[in-house]
Design a protein around this nucleic acid. Sequence first.
DNA 1: ATCAATTTTTAGCCTTGCCTAAAAATAGTG
DNA 2: CACTATTTTTAGGCAAGGCTAAAAATTGAT
Lengths: 225, 225
Amino acid sequence: MYTESIENYLKTIYEIQKESEKVTTNSISEKLGVAPASVTSMMKKLSEKKLITHKRYQGVKLTGPGKKIALEVIRHHRLVELYLAEALGVPWDQVHDEAEKWEHVLSEDLEDRMDKVLGYPTRDPHGSPIPSRDGTVIELESIPLVELQPGQSGVIAEVSDHDPDLLRYVGKMGLYPMTKIEVLSVEPFSGPITIKVEDASHILGSEAAQYVFVSDVEGERGEAS
Amino acid sequence: MYTESIENYLKTIYEIQKESEKVTTNSISEKLGVAPASVTSMMKKLSEKKLITHKRYQGVKLTGPGKKIALEVIRHHRLVELYLAEALGVPWDQVHDEAEKWEHVLSEDLEDRMDKVLGYPTRDPHGSPIPSRDGTVIELESIPLVELQPGQSGVIAEVSDHDPDLLRYVGKMGLYPMTKIEVLSVEPFSGPITIKVEDASHILGSEAAQYVFVSDVEGERGEAS
DNA sequence: ATCAATTTTTAGCCTTGCCTAAAAATAGTG
DNA sequence: CACTATTTTTAGGCAAGGCTAAAAATTGAT
């Protein structure tokens, strides 16, 4: 078993790796809220344990075993998020913070029981994939809502869970995963976007629209507003 | 918020206080599995925080605030135990160990949600009282099964959860809280006890019978076997 | 290509919570 | 009442995981 701290570092490295190519000391420091020097010393420890490879000044990379642990933690996190939402009715903007604590104390037995109760789900409440037990992750093909053109439609695939305020904001207009939407208009210069959700139209700021991802996009591109 | 370690010390002190009058350094050390010296230094810290009173060489006592925290931890523990048993089907001999971890990461919000889902319960799966939010504990009047005489009957009130093997053992004969039993015979010299549970008779070792508590005892005492 | 800015690492320190070994206080016994 | 056994405390250390300040390596810009 690894410490909570190690689990958090590995999870964080995995998450950065997924979107940034290079995983730097600074990016880990920032995402984890610790000093860069603390990151360096932890990287040394993780290297010794063969959980990452680390070339000085060159960033880090998860090894096979390191990635496996990261995915286990993420699986716990997302399974717990969904469980809290489904079984205990926790609002989707709160499940993340709770899961941050629970992910480290969930036994394999309880993981299985939750998995079963939930019917072996594949997505968490924000639409992120729940890694399977053996470490398989099925990412959904999707693009940020902000890139859609008027007339295009699609299905909400995923919403970033990094900010509870954002989740409450987009939740109020019903932008949950699996919801069908259509872009009605887009104001120029990063202006607001008008979308149709369940026969109601809503106006969405472009910044928020960067964190909402859409799949199954259909319709012509390039129409002006 | 207090550390997990502090919460565990307070909980342990409360539990010892309930059955031993004097709470000694050694008893805490033993129950918590740490060296006596570690206990002494923690007692110093808890005294400074006004969570206990401590006279050197004289044992410790919880203060009002210390007791409050101890009861909150115990409430979390027992609520989680019951939740795991009811909602996730975890066997009663396993809930304790899981709850040991969960009790420290349960938010007030989730505590409330579990409480509600369970219908505001008052007993955990072993029959121990779940302290109310404001710190009230309703102890059940009960005596160890080993003290019953042939012909006496009663209702299982509580079973000690200190040993999973014991729980599995008595669970196999259906000795769960709220179960009616009747003592048929008691062999002398701490010999086995024959009891009737749900129209079946079982033989129970006297050691196990020390950890099973019975309430609502009825019937004549003192008959020989 | 050199110098400045940025990033990363090293060095040294702190807190928490545990440990062992030794000293001090208390309790029990002849 | 004195002496021994037990209990508790003190003293000194250790590992984890943070921190700050300073040094070193890299990057970027003129």
